[in-house]
Write a protein that binds this DNA or RNA. Sequence first.
DNA 1: TCTGGGGTCCTAGGACCC
DNA 2: TCTGGGGTCCTAGGACCC
Length: 420
Amino acid sequence: MFGLVDGNNFYATCERVFNPSLRGQPVCILSSNDGCAIARSDECKRLGVKMGQPIHEVPPHIRRQLRIFSANFGLYGDLSGRVVSVLREWFPRVEVYSIDESFVTFDGVPAEQREAMARQARSQIFQWVGIPCCVGIGPTKTLAKLANKLAKKTPHGVVTALPGSPELETYPVEDAWGVGRKLTAKLGAEGILTAADLARANPDTLRSRYGVTLARTQRELQGVVCSDLEEVEPERQQIVVSRSFGQEVTSLEDLQQAVSTFAQRACEKLRSRSLQASGVWVWLNTNPFKPGAAQYHPSKAFNFIAPTSDTREVLLVAQGLAKAMWKNGYRYKKAGVGLLDLTHGDVHQGDLFAGIDPRSQALMKVMDQANAKFGRGTMGMASSAWRSKGPALAKPVWAMNQKNLSPAYTTRWDQLVRVR
DNA sequence: TCTGGGGTCCTAGGACCC
DNA sequence: TCTGGGGTCCTAGGACCC
């Protein structure tokens, strides 16, 4: 049996943990650049703010009632780790599925004890970390997900879903895991409106019309396990860093600084996972929402002869790609850098003629260690915006808007909460 | 004025191999 | 008039997830 544990309105709840004045208030978390609502407390949902809604579309009289925050991923990630560490004490097998969701298994736990166990784990997480969770239990991950959604509507927060449960008859198919907007529309046209309808549909027709993914979802709703617990995170295939700009960028110099900064960050992520990249990919975008503005969204990739994790090498290429795509006269709103064809550092297919420069790894190691010890941005490449962290340089024009960022309560000494 | 970021998997078609 | 069988790899697009 599987369990799915997830934090209710996770980001909004994280903000409340260290700021009790937010309890009972409509809390709304904005995406990077303070654009869209990406998390809402129940009170905020009741005021009609929609998931993903651009905040400027929310009527001013509603907006004034909201407690608005810029996304503070450092805080959310840290609290997420605390939730997982409590879970590991209760369950021998845990799959961390996302920042706010984990799958667990009830191996060897008798059926009549599972819900009680889930309730205990749930109350301990609330007591120790301060995050209210719900637990869904089912014989497959898909049913556990479904049960979790049902649990949100109960006061005790724990629900079990079995194949053929009466709840499936009224459970909308679009809320099933693996059924998105497009499939909902197509299935609806065939009269498949609920999870029970999907479970009952003709499997051959489903397979041939919609592919193997939906066929698996159907089997899982019938109680057949198609997706097992993945305790070890699979190796990354790609690493992407992209941002919308706070202000539109109109000079190549600013654009290259942004691209450098993203490339540098991508390389840090790469090395933290002991990976190397064989390809780099850069793309640029103008503002698609601006009516009448000239649009341009080029993208260009480059393959290395031998995989690398050296920031200098990646940066040089990323800069070159950005320059090659640059056209005067456009107003750029977004850029991104991707690292592709990732391989593990210990399986190195070298360059027959150039060999490996041992100094490269040593240099990167020193940089990473300095940044780990003294904080991100302590050492960096001059072409990036790394120095903008210090007091001497102005904020880059492309820097994100984060007007309502809460403190790094758990990850910076100077931002700890004071108790009088 | 203001519109997120980071991923995965599947499928079909084309180019190429022997 | 007739035109094989069995593969791989790559890419683009579409769908999904949080």
